[in-house]
Design a protein around this nucleic acid. Structure first.
Lengths: 137, 137
DNA sequence: ACGAATTCTAGAATAATTCTAATCTGAGAA
DNA sequence: TTCTCAGATTAGAATTATTCTAGAATTCGT
């Protein structure tokens, strides 16, 4: 019984990869566990690489982050120039951005009410509306 | 009379630099003219460097863009990872982002009505709210 | 266990940006 | 005008994030 919690967590993570059509390799599983086993997270390639330290290469982290993003398991966010964040919360929502620390925090979709939007330019379709609330430096 | 239009434009640009406390050097004037002499623009360091080609170095373009931004003449925007945009429109407004082409287009402040926002986290102050409307790839 | 396709890896390559140290220049003082 | 020097410019090196390459290893259906 002692390990059933993490066992089922591992199984969930494994199934999640399979469901997305990603081969559950050792390194993808390790990364997916770090990403999905606990609450929602915002990581960079480097921060995740450091957590997983020793067991895989940085290129694999980049590959995995992009593969996960392509399959809808992650969302990429570009707020700070020069470094991408990846968000494990792929549902529609917004963000606080702490200018002081460069950290992100989720803002639930319903705390931001948008009562009107412009029409998309000719021939274009709105794919997503992202709100970033910047917090003073 | 023929050149009075561009003369006064040059004078405006020069005064704008002076007013911001920036020494109006030859290269800053050249860049400021490209940036401010016509309508609002979105540039990257490289695109601006290419326009000014031959008369100054890339490092100077970066220096100028950052100096201008610090003095409030430009605003930096990070939407695509790996490359910064600079916006000559420093008034509050939002953006369309064309995923297909990587281009930006201004959205007037009043076309986006936000009827509610979350409170800032403890000890923080909202410095700005940015809305990016992504247009389908 | 076998084979084919996919994935992983180290290290090289690339792209955007910043740094460095030497040189130059604008603007006020003389 | 000329002098002076803080501030600006420059070429090129350095740094940082990311992507590429090509060979080695692994997964998975059979």
């Amino acid at each position: 019984m002692r390990s059933s919690g993490s066992l089922s967590r591992d199984t969930n993570v494994l199934n999640r990869l399979r469901a997305a059509g990603l081969r559950p390799t050792r390194q993808r599983l390790a990364l997916a566990k770090l990403l999905f086993a606990h609450g929602p997270r915002h990581v960079t390639a480097e921060s995740l690489f450091n957590e997983a330290r020793g067991n895989l290469s940085l290129a694999t982290v980049y590959n995995a982050l992009h593969d996960f993003t392509e399959k809808g398991l992650l969302r990429e966010i570009s707020i700070k120039s020069g470094q991408s964040y990846f968000d494990t919360n792929t549902t529609a929502h917004h963000h606080f951005y702490f200018e002081k620390t460069g950290k992100l925090q989720d803002v639930p979709l319903e705390s931001v009410q948008i009562s009107s939007l412009p029409e998309a330019p000719m021939g274009e379709t709105i794919s997503r509306v992202e709100v970033v609330i910047r917090l003073a430096r």
